[in-house]
């Protein structure tokens, strides 16, 4: 199988997120999925850019889709924000012919054309829907039974489900099922589906802190070996933001490692912590790695 891939701006650029890219490349390679980066990716113009002008913003996202269409490939992305933008392009093209025409005009001036044939897929949904549990299971070489994690799906991969065409948006389990193949216990705890406040950073920092504080108290009370995030913004919020919350709210014992979803899968596929950048996270991951090594016997 071959897919085009657009990484988004956060994942390849932030120190604590490059492990997301490294792990994703490794697991996709293991699963025999060939990937081709969208050449000279542009900003996907997420929702707040869309407020400035929706047509131009959708044209920005459509530019990456047009590149994927040129390659004759569907588009994979690990970024939940980008995923949302790409899904929205196809939705608007189908439902608002007038906006469609205007997007076409913008693209044609740049020498591009987008027919709307590219299906965009979120990495985690792709693993579940297109690769499937049986195939993933064949690649698991390390049993991680004994690890107890809290999985955060984030918001933008899931909602609204009509637009994103994803299994179920309110209490999804598809990503948990993949982790369970490795023996991992994905704990159900209060707040795991709730928003992290990440998009309020820089706009309403006090409120972003208050929401993150709630999320971290939820996670702390759930007694987890690690939080596992799908969304890059959730990761920045929980990993980098954890230090802020620790100081601000005097939570001295707060130190929950925050792991990227594909990193955990890569460990299960037998990759080493070094290969997948676990040392670049803000909250040290050593304790988590030690436990994973101990239960996994590696």
């Amino acid at each position: 199988m071959k897919m085009a891939i657009a990484w988004g701006c956060l994942i390849p650029t932030r120190r604590s997120l490059i492990g997301y890219e490294a792990a994703t490349r490794k697991i996709l390679d293991d699963l025999d999925v060939e990937i081709a980066d969208v050449p000279n990716e542009t900003c996907c113009a997420p929702f707040w850019m869309q407020s400035l002008d929706i047509t131009t913003s959708l044209a920005m996202a459509a530019r990456n889709l047009a590149k994927a269409e040129e390659m004759g490939l569907d588009l994979l992305t690990p970024c939940s924000g980008c995923f949302h933008s790409y899904k929205r392009v196809n939705y608007v093209l189908q439902n608002y012919p007038e906006v469609h025409e205007r997007i076409d005009r913008i693209l044609s001036k740049a020498g591009l054309n987008y027919e709307g044939k590219v299906e965009s897929k979120h990495l985690v949904d792709f693993l579940f829907t297109d690769i499937g549990l049986d195939e993933i299971k064949k690649h698991i070489s390390v049993d991680l039974s004994g690890l107890e994690i809290g999985l955060r799906y984030g918001c933008h991969m899931l909602k609204p489900h009509e637009l994103l065409n994803i299994e179920y948006s309110e209490r999804p389990v598809f990503a948990d099922l993949i982790l369970e193949l490795m023996g991992i216990t994905s704990k159900s705890y209060i707040g795991r589906y709730r928003c992290c406040g990440g998009l309020l950073r820089g706009i309403q920092d006090e409120l972003a802190d208050r929401i993150l504080h709630e999320r971290l108290v939820d996670a702390y009370n759930a007694n987890l070996d690690a939080l596992v995030t799908v969304c890059s913004l959730c990761h920045l919020q929980h990993d980098m933001g954890q230090r802020i919350i620790k100081r601000k709210y005097g939570m001295d014992n707060l130190e929950i490692p925050v792991i990227h979803y594909p990193q955990l899968l890569a460990l299960g596929f037998g990759h080493s912590p070094e290969e997948i950048g676990l040392k670049y996270h803000t909250i040290p991951t050593e304790k988590f790695i030690q436990k994973a090594m101990k239960v996994g016997g590696v």
Partner: peptide
């Protein structure tokens, strides 16, 4: 980590749409 140092992002497309915004 064995990743490409260069990200190849640029402002070519944005330059074209900036005015439209």
């Amino acid at each position: 980590l064995g990743l490409d140092r260069d990200l190849h992002w640029n402002n070519e497309f944005v330059k074209m749409v900036k005015k439209k915004y």
